[in-house]
Design a protein around this nucleic acid. Structure first.
Lengths: 206, 206
DNA sequence: AGAAATACGGAACAATGTTCCGTTTAGCAA
DNA sequence: TTGCTAAACGGAACATTGTTCCGTATTTCT
């Protein structure tokens, strides 16, 4: 992986100070590309031609490839941004709801988040090595969030405690991948079924 | 469009209904293509170049396109064959197991069947209209099978009766789509969790 | 066997990801 | 401000892969 991105945050002061921070227009174009990509992906899915994204951002394809050496890098960057947003939502829910409700609601939210990402499934299963780090990122950001919710709910006795958070995260993510037309409603029902699976045996009948 | 249509489903036998072909070599090549495609897909996934499949079958790309006007048609044809096999397995299980076990085992079997289909998820989510008929076919062949199993299990009181077979079929299919390395084991656990969801509330503990 | 229809093979075409390189521009210094 | 240099830019050119076209070969029928 020859990622020429600034790996070092250290700036030796005394010597020749070179503008390693990057140029202003470069930063501007990078933001424009991410924004354009998000819009185009939402409209046409992640299979949208690179040229379309570059055009929408008002730059040439060369510029796009300067910032994202591979088409897949751009896709991954866009998704990472959104994953962060979803992870942050967990803490909010936990503060507002009972443990069980927070868990159930976050699972629904995560599933619906996935559902809006047309082509995410295809990307993940494409076999492209660039996407190999995406599930990892999903896990890194979302697993702690889910783990906290799950643990809290288990402690409250609302769900059982023998479920691996990894499994649950994967399961919800897959259920969220939309298929047909009534995708949303069906996804909700399927996730609800999974939640019932969590509740099964939580409180052993006396 | 000289595709010898054999629309009749009046073939109660398990073997693939062989379309009455005009010419012998055409039939031979068609079989060779399906066989080659199955092998190549298993090796390289459904993204394998068309030329590779044609080469392995020992024919030119023109021949391939004569039989399958679109690349997607070939993929769909290959999958249809396998779906049939999976559907047939339901009846077998029902004859050998208790209703609840038959249901649980078939769900596991279906999930693992999906897991072996590298790129199936990508194909289904590609947005290609040709694949739009695939979920339909999944449903047409597999839904009756699952419905019978589910109904029997519900009647036996082993699972609850308020679950839509469509939802369940979708859910298992998605859980089966492998992601990581330990895919198989994880999938089994996730499906098991779903089964517990089915059991939840089936027999209210006295 | 001869004719006609069918099927075949692969070159040519089109769409799209990626690279290359001459041109432009931001940031710095005198 | 003006000039310089490295960074960034744009888009044409290239590579890969799906698809079409058509001249040629093969099968089937009479």
């Amino acid at each position: 992986m020859d990622r020429p991105r600034a790996e070092h945050g250290d700036e030796p002061e005394g010597m020749v100070a070179k503008p390693r921070a990057g140029r202003a227009d470069a930063q501007r174009n990078m933001d424009a590309l991410l924004k354009a990509a998000l819009e185009v992906f939402a409209t046409s899915g992640v299979d949208a031609p690179v040229r379309d994204i570059a055009a929408r951002a008002g730059v040439g394809v060369g510029t796009l490839y300067r910032h994202f050496p591979q088409r897949a890098d751009l896709i991954a960057a866009v998704f990472r941004r959104e994953i962060d947003a979803c992870a942050d939502a967990a803490a909010e829910l936990a503060a507002e709801q009972t443990p069980g409700d927070a868990l159930a609601q976050w699972m629904q939210r995560y599933a619906s988040f996935i559902a809006t990402k047309r082509g995410l499934a295809a990307a993940l299963h494409s076999g492209d090595p660039t996407f190999d780090t995406l599930p990892e990122y999903f896990q890194k950001r979302l697993l702690p969030a889910l783990q906290a919710l799950l643990h809290a709910a288990a402690d409250a006795g609302e769900v059982r405690g023998d479920v691996d958070p990894n499994d649950l995260l994967s399961a919800v993510g897959r259920l969220g991948m939309r298929a047909g037309d009534d995708g949303t409603a069906q996804t909700q029902r399927m996730v609800a079924l999974l939640v019932d699976g969590l509740r099964y045996g939580a409180k052993p009948p006396a």
